[in-house]
Design a binder for these strands. Sequence first.
DNA 1: TAGTTTGTACAGTTTAAACTGTACGTAAAA
DNA 2: TTTTACGTACAGTTTAAACTGTACAAACTA
Lengths: 154, 154
Amino acid sequence: MDIDQNIIANLINTFSQTLEMFDLSSADARLFTILYLNHQPMTLDEMSQTTGKSKTTVNTGIRNLSDLNLVKQVWKKGVRKDLYTTDHALYQCFMSTYINKWLGHTVNQEESLAKIKAQLASQYKDELIVNKLNEMIAFHTSLKNSFAQMKPTT
Amino acid sequence: MDIDQNIIANLINTFSQTLEMFDLSSADARLFTILYLNHQPMTLDEMSQTTGKSKTTVNTGIRNLSDLNLVKQVWKKGVRKDLYTTDHALYQCFMSTYINKWLGHTVNQEESLAKIKAQLASQYKDELIVNKLNEMIAFHTSLKNSFAQMKPTT
DNA sequence: TAGTTTGTACAGTTTAAACTGTACGTAAAA
DNA sequence: TTTTACGTACAGTTTAAACTGTACAAACTA
């Protein structure tokens, strides 16, 4: 029996919106969701058909998702076309990657700011700018702590 | 004494990159940073000068930042031009807004998914799609918990 | 009052991203 | 082998965002 396509479309939209918060483009989020909801791995042509985008577009979309380890290629004997499927461990997949991205960034920037501080502070101990810089560094430290706290026990 | 402009430029770039992670555009992030680092409130003309963008662009940028409560207008007697300054409580300003955004979104989407589930589940109890939907809902619940845990004691 | 100055609305331009169709290399099929 | 099917590189197009300059309304100055 056929499931109402409007409901499915709504579902795809709703979930895609959440994925966009993980810095996926709207198109990539839709592509992931469609693949995720599909019961079997899909070919480029099927995804092109379902998304209404050209095969080239789907191809680059799949490449984006693969780079993010959100999609993997699977083989099925007798099938010549490339088949793709999603990683189904949603939370692990998205959230832990996301937290790591934040942690990596904050640690990086904190180090950069420390270097800048070294450059400035040696010469301009009392400048207001040094105070601002210290606030920025403290900000990064707080961010780091918050995200570290959120990190799941891995 | 003049602080090396290269160092300042580097500082602006570094901090702006962090702000971009809070979904600010590159231009808005730079504008905020410049305003944040400035010792006094700034006028549109000054910001236009400093950013190298037109006054119109700065104007819309300031409007964006104001909408996000990142910038406020201040008055100083004798000064005819509008003066703007940043909120200097960086963590509170950015992080708590960010967490609230996530929480708001996840709660919203979770409700939407619950409605979709009601529509589907009444008719198609055993469809695979319902399982997927349940996974999605569980995902949102996990997200909600993670961000709620991160929420500072307010 | 008239003359400035300032912020912003708006129309048009520039720039970057998303997307498409063609073309071609490679690998399977016949 | 030849033929067909598939993935993707590439050039060009469409679309959306960022940005600019002009123009004008509101507020200040004299």
